[in-house]
Design a binder for these strands. Structure first.
Length: 572
DNA sequence: GCCGTTTTCGGCCCGACTGTTTTCAGTCG
């Protein structure tokens, strides 16, 4: 059992304890331990003493030891004997928590989503204590939404929605200031809902305007400090707006950015310093004096910490790092000097080389590499060696146009199922940037896939491995791969691994990036743009890089053109 | 269940909103 499996069992135990009505702090203790184990770098099975982890004591350690030894948990089995497993699915229905689920089970014998739907339709739920006709109606709608959409929505799905909302907020005169918050601001790859903090002196007016916003299917909650709506989309999206007076904006933004885990730890720290932290600021326990923070920086300063950027606020080791002065100076979008992965009309892109180049230049880039698909990827119009040579000539022509911008020649070349590359070396050696990619036969076993990728890494002409794990968020698992071996080969040869910025991919993931950084493996952030608009993908890439604690110096395409070319040509 | 320059017992982050209640429990983040 790996750490993730163990954490999943502990969370399951916590959920079951909650439904059983046990001491809620006991359930939370299991969740806290799960978090510690999940983020532990070393397999806990190899740890001499699990209780060394924060939040893991004798009780949890006994469960973990049993899991490691037998793969089973007596505690979990006892709980499952008492509580039908189907009840866990009910926890995913918004509006249902452990207490209400307990009542539904004990009073009506409900053990599944289907049971609940039936009871709702027969109006048996409204008679229960603590329930009513309104609850019944809300549950009916929530149930429909919950069964209709995945629990967390991919970034790629919600980003355009968020941008439209931001346009709307910007158009409201009563809005003084606003910002994304929640996991969207932290650039998490999936989000449960969208959060915005809005500063206004006229909360009622803004609340009315937001509730009446186009696309709103229903208003879930509306008060002077909060509006919560559900949008009518393929997958319904819940949007929470927090309305605060302008002077409370920074505190509120911090609060609603989360994560919950980060806040728990921060508030523990605040308490130790005699401060009580809330969404409105801080209060000195001794004097009762209230402090409103002018900025998030001021909030952290009050806790004797340097500013911790949103992307790091995951409740892992960021507070310890901040305390020790070990926070990274995170890469910023402005540090990116060029894009090393994009497509044009020569293969499956929607814009010409010229259009892509002009758009990149307008973004302030100093260079792009044109990396269309290679010959075996027929479906994407992959280029033959002859076409590739013609493209090189076209690029050489185009380059005469600028003295402040360069188009590099390149290719996104398939690594074939048998491990061979899609072009011979004498074709590759003519190109500035060669990306190796797997697009076919990714169901091979881990050993074969790992060998394919390492074979490409070891070719001196290959500079970057694109989307190394091949996952598609919420759609396709990463392919089985010995990532440690891939990282090691990349480190030895200086081959960069890509952080692919397509919001459906975001591959490598933050935890991979941290490992790569620790090993000294260079990372290339690529947009994988198939159109001018998709050059913007880079934002999600930079956000993900920041979640992976990357600095400017960890990323290849932050280098000026000369330094980049020198690096690419180091092996001839 | 965990944890301790408040402590080995008694806390455990904090506040808003809803709906069902007549003063508050449950849920959410």
């Amino acid at each position: 059992m790996n750490n993730r499996d163990i954490a999943a069992v502990l969370r399951r135990i916590a959920d079951l304890l909650d439904i059983e009505g046990d001491n809620p702090f006991r359930a939370n203790a299991y969740r806290r331990a799960a978090q510690a184990i999940e983020t532990c770098r070393q397999p806990v099975a190899e740890l001499a003493d699990v209780t060394a982890l924060p939040g893991v004591g004798k009780g949890v350690a006994a469960v973990v030891d049993e899991l490691v030894a037998t793969g089973r948990s007596t505690l979990l089995e006892e709980l499952e004997a008492k509580i039908p497993a189907g009840l866990l699915a009910l926890l995913r229905v918004p509006g249902l928590g452990p207490k209400k689920i307990g009542v539904l089970y004990r009073e009506l014998g409900i053990t599944s989503l289907a049971d609940l739907e039936k009871a709702l339709n027969e109006q048996r739920v409204r008679a229960l204590p603590g329930f009513g006709a309104k609850t019944e109606q809300n549950l009916r709608q929530a149930l429909r939404a919950a069964t209709q959409r995945p629990e967390r929505l991919p970034l790629a799905y919600v980003l355009p929605v968020a941008e439209a909302i931001e346009q709307h907020l910007a158009s409201l005169e009563a809005v003084a200031r606003f910002s994304r918050a929640g996991s969207l601001r932290r650039w998490k790859e999936t989000v449960k809902d969208l959060d915005f903090v809005v500063a206004t002196a006229l909360p009622e007016e803004v609340a009315d305007a937001l509730a009446a916003m186009p696309g709103v299917a229903r208003v879930i909650a509306k008060g002077p400090t909060k509006v919560s709506v559900e949008l009518d989309l393929t997958w319904p999206v819940t949007v929470d707006f927090r309305l605060v007076p302008p002077e409370a904006f920074a505190s509120a933004l911090h609060h609603f950015t989360g994560s919950a885990e980060h806040h728990v730890r921060l508030r523990q720290r605040a308490k130790a310093k005699g401060l009580s932290l809330s969404e409105y600021g801080a209060e000195e326990a001794a004097s009762g004096r209230r402090i409103a923070f002018a900025s998030e920086e001021a909030l952290y300063a009050a806790l004797d910490l340097p500013y911790i950027p949103p992307e790091l606020r995951e409740g892992e080791d960021e507070i310890e790092a901040a305390e020790a002065g070990r926070l990274p100076r995170l890469i910023a979008e402005a540090d990116v000097r060029g894009d090393l992965h994009l497509h044009t009309t020569w293969s499956d892109g929607g814009n010409t080389i010229e259009e892509m180049a002009e758009a990149a230049r307008l973004r302030g880039y100093a260079y792009i590499a044109v990396t269309d698909h290679s010959q075996s990827l027929k479906i994407a119009g992959g280029l033959s060696p002859k076409e590739l040579a013609a493209q090189r000539e076209a690029i050489a022509d185009l380059n005469k146009r600028w003295d402040d911008f360069a188009v590099l020649t390149g290719v996104e070349m398939d690594i074939l199922p048998d491990g061979r590359l899609d072009y011979p070396d004498d074709v590759l050696k003519e190109l500035d940037v060669v990306i190796g990619s797997i697009h076919q036969r990714f169901r091979q076993d881990a050993d074969t896939l790992t060998k394919r990728i390492i074979g490409a890494i070891e070719n001196t002409h290959v500079d970057i491995i694109a989307h190394p794990t091949g996952r598609l968020i919420a759609r396709r698992d990463p392919y089985p791969l010995n990532l440690d071996a891939v990282f090691e080969a990349a480190r030895e040869t200086g081959t960069a691994l890509e952080l692919n910025s397509n919001p459906n991919r975001l591959d490598l993931k933050p935890e991979h990036l941290r490992r790569a950084k620790a090993l000294g493996v260079p990372i290339a952030i690529g947009s994988d743009a198939h159109s001018v608009a998709e050059l913007d993908n880079i934002r999600a890439g930079v956000g993900t890089a920041r979640r992976g604690w990357l600095e400017k110096t960890d990323v290849l395409n932050t280098r000026p053109l000369d330094a980049l070319l020198a690096y690419l040509r180091r092996n001839g």
